[in-house]
Nucleic acid binder design. Structure first.
Lengths: 190, 190
DNA sequence: CGCGACGTTGATTTGCCTCAACGATTGTGG
DNA sequence: CCACAATCGTTGAGGCAAATCAACGTCGCG
């Protein structure tokens, strides 16, 4: 037994054969088509998604009704709506496959059972969350201190291949600007 | 034995007498004067701070040399620079007491030992981080979709008492605007 | 008292948005 | 396999939110 998620977990904690079995038993593999949703606004988020292949995004609709992307998740990233999952409250977000993707679903209940049976997994998620939190705060730092132009360059330098994978309007909203303005910037920096 | 931090931990996990003892033994209580630093740019961040009383903030200097606050931590919040702590790399941030404060310091090593002895604490931090991450993402949502005016109102409604506790220039940078503009907004909404 | 830190106010400038029109590309049904 | 409609990216004109810059008032503190 061996797949992307297990490899990822093994980077942070060591699991024996039994524990690996248990973890694997908690997961549900799922293929997603392009534009397929795993969460819609108003629904309750039931668990976490680990991206083994492809790309998912989380977005919401602002007051003008335009999509605002607040997170991309590519290979080896988790994506979920913690708010909704924790409180079992209707989500304010959509989670959607940007391209055809393969994910592992870990439901909230499975996750709790997993923690009870394999405490090391609590450590794994603690570490992942710590990294995610640090990354998000770093992102905030850039948002405030960089002009849109520099923010875009920063991003395109940091994830060069990624630009080709997502439509520009998604990227624009993720970077907090209009598609028109992103277009203008791109023409300046090929 | 009983103090703010222990009470906070007990909200999320149950500790017996021994475990409480161990946790307490890992902490170092510290009083901070107004404007006192616990981390400066270039230093390596050695651990986590829990605010029992008062208020701390994390900020950096942008290219113009002006302070940019990216986090406030009031009572019952943790503050640290994960990036620096994890990698043992020089920090890009300052962490400073906004007002005279009382904190518990949990060093990185103590934390690891604590996790080894009291695995439940790994759970505690996982939960805290999950909440913090969700809150930060919510904040990002507001940053992008609200005008500065609404962002300010949103904040002042959300933390009414807090406005009096911090100088306006700190608040302005936290909200991503200039002190001048914040002043203008405040005169409009008393 | 006098200095430095902080807040305010106003004039001017600009980064970025809005709106509208126009290509290019894709996909879909006849 | 083409026609036609969506969907997406581009370009340009005009407008506004918010920044910049400078000057001044005020408070607290050594």
């Amino acid at each position: 037994m061996d797949h992307t998620l297990l490899n990822h977990v093994r980077k942070f904690v060591e699991l024996n054969e039994d524990e690996t079995q248990i973890l694997d038993g908690c997961l549900r593999f799922k293929k997603l088509k392009r534009k397929e949703y795993v969460l819609r606004i108003g629904e309750i988020c039931r668990g976490n998604y680990f991206v083994a292949k492809g790309c998912l995004r989380k977005f919401y609709l602002n007051e003008n009704g335009t999509e605002q992307t607040i997170q991309f998740a590519i290979e080896n990233w988790w994506i979920t709506d913690f708010m909704s999952m924790e409180k079992e409250a209707p989500s304010e977000f959509f989670i959607q496959a940007v391209e055809s993707s393969e994910v592992f679903f870990l439901s909230h209940e499975s996750q709790e059972q997993l923690f009870a049976k394999v405490p090391k997994m609590e450590r794994y998620f603690r570490i992942i969350l710590q990294k995610s939190y640090a990354a998000l705060q770093q992102r905030n730092k850039y948002i405030f201190s960089l002009s849109k132009e520099k923010f875009y360059k920063q991003f395109s330098d940091g994830f060069p291949g990624f630009l080709q994978r997502v439509p520009q309007y998604m990227l624009a909203s993720y970077l907090g600007m209009t598609p028109e303005y992103l277009s203008e910037l791109r023409s300046k920096f090929p």
